[in-house]
């Protein structure tokens, strides 16, 4: 069975994004765990906070919401969010690529679906709804 060109590309981009994101997630976690880079909240203090609802946790730790964590880089606890962002951006990159392929095939319904999906993902990622 022959795969379509855009399915091959989607699979390739998905594999790259998943590997990169997963590697970043795990590497940054061990950096945090073994205190290789100073964290914002040391893991030894976390048991005091992890049972709190997120609102109380944010108030108690002064942790940031939205993209505020970027300003706290390279603190090792927020370094982990780089991996999360790579995982989250993978589908966005895949859809951006799909638009080109579907437009080349003049498959306008699927171009519209791609644009709508990108708009939804970009809105969620931007944090403007939060």
């Amino acid at each position: 069975m022959k795969l379509e060109r855009h399915e091959k590309a989607y699979a390739r981009w998905l594999a790259i994004g998943a590997r990169l994101g997963f590697a970043a997630l795990v590497a940054s976690f061990f950096i945090y765990l073994f205190d290789l880079i100073p964290p914002g909240i040391p893991p030894t203090e976390l048991p005091r906070y992890w049972g709190l609802p997120v609102g109380q946790y944010l108030a108690a730790t002064h942790a940031s919401t939205g993209w505020g964590w970027v300003a706290r880089l390279p603190q090792s606890d927020v370094l982990n969010f780089v991996g999360v962002v790579i995982l989250g951006a993978t589908s966005i990159a895949c859809y951006a690529r799909l638009i080109v392929d579907y437009a080349a095939e003049r498959d306008w319904i699927y171009v519209a679906i791609c644009i709508a999906q990108l708009a939804v993902l970009a809105t969620a990622a931007s944090g403007i709804l939060n």
Binding site: F29, W50, T65, F81, V85, L87, G88, V120, L121, N130
Partner: peptide, 21 residues
């Protein structure tokens, strides 16, 4: 992979992710 991405962005932006978990 697409549905969970959307919701995961919301949780990240709301500060509801703990790497140790």
């Amino acid at each position: 992979s697409i549905m969970n991405t959307s919701a995961a962005w919301v949780y990240l932006n709301e500060g509801a992710l703990l790497p140790i978990l």
